[in-house]
Design a protein around this nucleic acid. Structure first.
Lengths: 257, 257
DNA sequence: ATAATAGTGTCTTTCAGACACTATATC
DNA sequence: GATATAGTGTCTGAAAGACACTATTAT
């Protein structure tokens, strides 16, 4: 411990080297969906994208970076991230989650900066009206693979890789898939969303398992109309599909069953 | 964003209010095991305990608190936590994991302090030689329930509750149980460790499932002697029990199976 | 023999996984 | 009728869950 021996009357934090800032960085994910060109009804093509801003000033002027900014004394780190998210995208009330701290010495040429990284999951409909904020030259969505191949500012490539690993893991173990879907959705939409985030995911009997397995089925339920009949959607298909919604049930996983 | 418009030649972090420190707090868990008084061989009583220090100075002088200290500019937060853990307990090379940041305004009377919380899992044999460091009046292990009922310094009760929830969840979804066990262990030891951390855990056919289930058995394997026979232990029992060890296999859980 | 721990036998019900098949509606 | 999506029938083998039973050995 290098905490000084002090008391209330003579304690002075300024006697010690202190951080030069506590920024937040936010990896904003969205899944875009693009209907296939043909006139026929069919499943859209979905793609995982991240929102980046182009820096306007030193350091890393002109390079692309994660949105974020400095925390203030009057707010928690989490509130700071929410504020920055709203400032960057105009979006509030979306899923935002803290996942790691980045503190490698020299990671920021401006000084000793301890950065707190969040990921946010945003339905694409919320990102339509976005625009570049004051300190950004440009704001854009990039496919995740493309973003990871760019020469990003700071250690943002590492942060983004970590964020991707996080949401891939959470996609399979929690119900965050709901953040990318509408309230009501079909099984193929859910399946597509999972596959978009975790390309290796494959379950041939997906519909059967998700709808009939005792241990799993608590997480979703059928949507019924006012007559108690299953509510259907034919948005993507000739034959109408049953609509489902997530319940509030939080699944508990265990390797020891 | 409140990031200033600056460039390399005129950027001065000191123009903005900056944090007064970036401390780490470490929730050090151990499981003590106490042989039953009788002469007969029997399973020990196990208890989940946390290590606390008694503060020697303002603020919260005389109160019990989590060990920890201030990060330095030349190290990462993670390195800082490891350093503090070693300073407090003499222990290195144990499982230590970052889990959250605490930044509520006014959480520390010394100023704007953003605290980074870790949990460490330590086998009780490593905590025998511990002693109070310079800035602590005393160091002791407390049963987790007792510790949570104490009037702890700062927001350390919240941090400890969060840490407990974390290790309970990880106990069931990862192989961290190994951190509380020796390299080789019996099924009843493993079962006891899980139950000590997660009291609600109950599996009647535990041995059978963990040793025979295809999907789960990859995480542990039987220990064999040099003749290829199962290595046994009669430390706790009349009848000798098979010894197991964890493999390096990392189980992947999914709610969508 | 007793006690304490370590396992096995056996039954029923459910689930996983495969894959061919049927169903519905649009073009 | 071709096509695209949605879903069912049916089979096999494996696993879950319950619980009574046997096995081993220090005392």
């Amino acid at each position: 411990m290098n905490m000084p021996i002090e008391n209330e009357t003579n304690y002075q934090a300024s006697k010690y080297r202190t951080p030069d800032g506590a920024p937040t960085d936010i990896v904003i994910f969205t899944i875009t969906s693009e209907g296939k060109g043909s006139v026929k009804k069919s499943l859209p093509t979905r793609e995982l994208q991240v929102l980046l801003i182009q820096r306007k000033q030193w350091p890393f002027e002109g390079q692309w970076a994660l949105p974020g900014g400095f925390s203030m004394e009057s707010e928690t780190i989490h509130e700071s991230a929410r504020r920055e998210l709203t400032e960057e995208t105009g979006v509030s009330d979306v899923h935002i989650e803290y996942f790691n701290v980045y503190s490698t010495p020299q990671r920021d040429p401006r000084g000793w900066m301890i950065s707190h990284a969040f990921f946010a999951l945003v339905h694409e409909r919320y990102l339509e009206k976005r625009q570049a904020a004051d300190d950004a030259a440009d704001v854009r969505l990039f496919p995740i693979d493309e973003a990871l191949a760019m020469d990003l500012a700071f250690d943002h490539e590492i942060i983004m890789r970590d964020a991707l690993a996080q949401i891939q893991q959470k996609m399979l173990t929690t119900t965050i898939a709901r953040e990318f879907l509408s309230e009501e959705f079909t099984m193929s939409e859910l399946y597509q969303v999972i596959q978009t985030v975790v390309p290796t995911f494959e379950e041939r009997n997906f519909i059967r398992k998700i709808t009939s397995t005792q241990s799993r089925k608590g997480i979703i339920e059928e949507v019924l109309d006012h007559q108690g009949q299953g509510k259907m959607s034919n948005r993507y298909s000739q034959r109408a599909a049953q609509l489902y919604r997530f319940t509030d049930y939080v699944p508990q996983l265990s390797i020891y069953s």
